[in-house]
């Protein structure tokens, strides 16, 4: 026993400061937030009575104008468009580049560069690109549509009450498609050359090669990309704050937390934050468990 401890003990000791810090700053603070979310701390005075799950049920049943449900609806539209958009574009770009093109490095770098830019910086310009004026006053993308005689495409972008959040996803797609492309491209390149060659020898068509040999190999990459993009989407805050500012039309839970804190409603802010954490956990935990298991098997 002593010998075994001597064998792995130092490792545990080296990692223990990180473990302590994470135990406090991740799990400890989450527990603290949960506690606040069950109190009635609705203003800076901070009365600290325990109210159980009332703040949570209030969000779903007793929020003015169903504000929280509305923010969830916005988040859902945003997430679907953002995830589908990045996955499709990322896969398409990787597919186009995988077949070998001249100046591949240039394309890769350009597709990837938005990833280096912060949402705060790109929001400055997307505010202009998504200007809602049409006709003679049109600017940004609407102007381009006008010039290309695609006037029917001109629209009010994020100010549209029904589908505005789909427009809001555009800057996010712009920013992260390159990243998904990089993941897929790494996936493509990780497929052993022999597999492709064998398939070609057998006379498989290019379509069949991708359909039956390459895409199945990419499933794990696609899953990783999905998880990464998906959880980023749920946390989306910077982009919305810098494009539209905090307002009803584009409010998502992360922005609602900010708005609740602005009015010192700590309990409500905490309840929304905890729900947000739960949504992310529903996505992440099965994935983490799955990954750990898969790893152990191999």
């Amino acid at each position: 026993m002593g010998k075994r401890i001597k064998r792995w003990g130092p490792g545990l000791l080296l990692i223990s400061p990180s473990l302590v810090v994470l135990a406090v700053f991740v799990y400890g603070l989450i527990a603290w937030t949960v506690k606040v979310s069950m109190s009635d701390e609705h203003d800076a005075l901070g009365s600290k009575g325990f109210v159980g799950l009332k703040n949570y049920t209030d969000l779903f049943t007793n929020d003015i104008n169903d504000r929280f449900t509305h923010s969830l609806k916005n988040l859902l539209i945003f997430t679907v468009v953002f995830v589908v958009g990045t996955m499709v574009l990322g896969l398409l770009w990787a597919f186009l580049l995988d077949r070998g093109v001249r100046a591949e490095g240039v394309f890769r770098t350009v597709y990837l560069f938005p990833m280096a830019v912060s949402f705060v910086a790109s929001g400055v310009v997307w505010r202009w690109l998504m200007n809602s004026n049409t006709g003679d006053d049109a600017g940004g993308l609407n102007w381009i549509f006008g010039e290309l005689h695609l006037g029917f495409l001109q629209n009010s972008w994020w100010t549209n009450p029904d589908w505005g959040m789909a427009a809001m996803a555009m800057p996010a797609i712009w920013q992260l498609s390159g990243y998904v492309m990089a993941l897929f491209l790494a996936g493509f390149r990780g497929i052993p050359q022999e597999l492709r060659e064998a398939a070609v020898m057998d006379g498989t068509s290019t379509f069949q090669l991708y359909r039956h040999v390459i895409f199945p190999q990419l499933t794990p990459v696609a899953l990783s990309a999905l998880i990464i993009v998906g959880h980023m989407s749920m946390k989306m805050f910077d982009l919305i704050m810098s494009v539209s500012g905090a307002q009803w039309l584009t409010e998502v839970p992360a922005v609602y937390v900010w708005q609740a804190l602005l009015t010192s409603d700590y309990a409500k802010a905490a309840a929304i934050a905890v729900l947000l954490l739960l949504f992310v956990a529903v996505l992440i935990v099965p994935y983490l468990v799955h990954t750990t298991r898969a790893e152990r098997r191999s």
């Binding site: 937030t33 802010a269 934050a273 947000l276 954490l277």
Partner: peptide, 8 residues
Amino acid sequence: IPYQAVMI
């Protein structure tokens, strides 16, 4: 984790 869940 969404950092809002630890921010307060």
